[in-house]
Design a protein around this nucleic acid. Sequence first.
DNA 1: TTAATTTGTTAGTCATAGCTAACTTTTTTA
DNA 2: TAAAAAAGTTAGCTATGACTAACAAATTAA
Lengths: 228, 228
Amino acid sequence: MTNKLNLNNLTKSEEDYLKALFQLLIEDGATKVGNNQLAEYLKVSPASTNNMVKKLKTKGYVVSEKYGKLDLTEEGKPIAVRLIRKHRLWETFLCNYLNFTWDEVHDVAEQLEHIKSQKLIDELDRFMDFPQKDPHGEIIPNADGEYFVLPKITLSSLEEGDTCQLVAVNDGSVTFLKYVSEIGLALSSEIKIVEIREFDKSIRIEFNNAIETVTKKFADNVFVKKLV
Amino acid sequence: MTNKLNLNNLTKSEEDYLKALFQLLIEDGATKVGNNQLAEYLKVSPASTNNMVKKLKTKGYVVSEKYGKLDLTEEGKPIAVRLIRKHRLWETFLCNYLNFTWDEVHDVAEQLEHIKSQKLIDELDRFMDFPQKDPHGEIIPNADGEYFVLPKITLSSLEEGDTCQLVAVNDGSVTFLKYVSEIGLALSSEIKIVEIREFDKSIRIEFNNAIETVTKKFADNVFVKKLV
DNA sequence: TTAATTTGTTAGTCATAGCTAACTTTTTTA
DNA sequence: TAAAAAAGTTAGCTATGACTAACAAATTAA
Ligand SMILES: [Mn+2]
Ligand SMILES: [Mn+2]
Ligand SMILES: [Mn+2]
Ligand SMILES: [Mn+2]
């Protein structure tokens, strides 16, 4: 009913702010998101964010009280979800058809997600036979805008003796992703926590019949499903 | 030797101006291109063009004397060719893999041609097995930046009794392209000029064992190869 | 419960890339 | 060859989206 034809006449910047706010609100599971937090996430100044938030409020995509926290409206959310859908579909295309590695796709997808064409993205989805997950293990929102959050259990949250399966990785850092590949980890890898060292919280893990030591920082960026 | 690694840090606008100038100079076979001509082609004001030309001159991509005609430098040309390559490869991808019709691809390709990733375009080329022509019959420049101009003989330039083959169409207008398809013409169609009416230069053509009458304006946008 | 710190806002600046209006130079036409 | 027309330039304006510096409000710590 309230589903008015979305003209999609938002700028790249407006789209990026909406997506970032959504990711802080939903993905990273923050209860409240402040202006400066959003600024830091987007690597712009608090003044720039304040300015854009004002604009997005008048357009009806964001709500907040003066000096208060930010939230997306019911009009703002689907815009963010569509961007995430586009981003993840392009990443999948680049990996599965154009020989990109998972550390190469994010930056190009950041550009491609802003291409304006409904048909383009729907056809890309069909062409790839409606993939469910992107190269980093994240769930791709479907054409209806349904968004499912992958439970984000980090490798660092497990205890000695636990066994788990790698379900996703944080796709933000190229060096991190290269590192993950280099030591032989990939989606679906089975990992056992051998030991957590008290001194520096470094973790000895076993996978592929080999043992590696990783830092807590590394383990914070690896998402797993605990096995029984 | 002078082939310094091109950082490709041009804006979308700068790219569009260089491409437009190239198309006026090379494709449309104009001997000289003026400021206002470029402005009209890009649908911006002469003042805007003057401004951008100034910028592109200081960057070394364009040359001109005050009140004189515009030309591209040896640094400017390959940038334009790369854009045309990207544009036509994307159009081909959209048509051949994503179920776009030839009247739907141009606008989306205008956006996609500005995506910055050398790997993306080279891999797209490889994925499609190095296509030679785009959906409108235009030659796609190769990865080495070699540009071949298709001889632009218009259907309107032929005489009564001549026979020809459709090799390309002007891709600028959606309604024109739809019209071409609707009457049953396509790349490689064989066409015979049955009659050219003196009164309004309208042309009766025969193809697929049927006869159609088209205007001179229509025939100006159809490019052919004359058959013996 | 006051002071310090953090968070958010405002004002003013800059770059890019459009625009119109006015002006100058060049070219064409009478 | 002088006037008119066309082409090119300049000045000054606008919008977007960055920035810094200064300030105000809210939160946290002393
Ligand atoms: Mn990504
Ligand atoms: Mn983006
Ligand atoms: Mn085109
Ligand atoms: Mn373009």
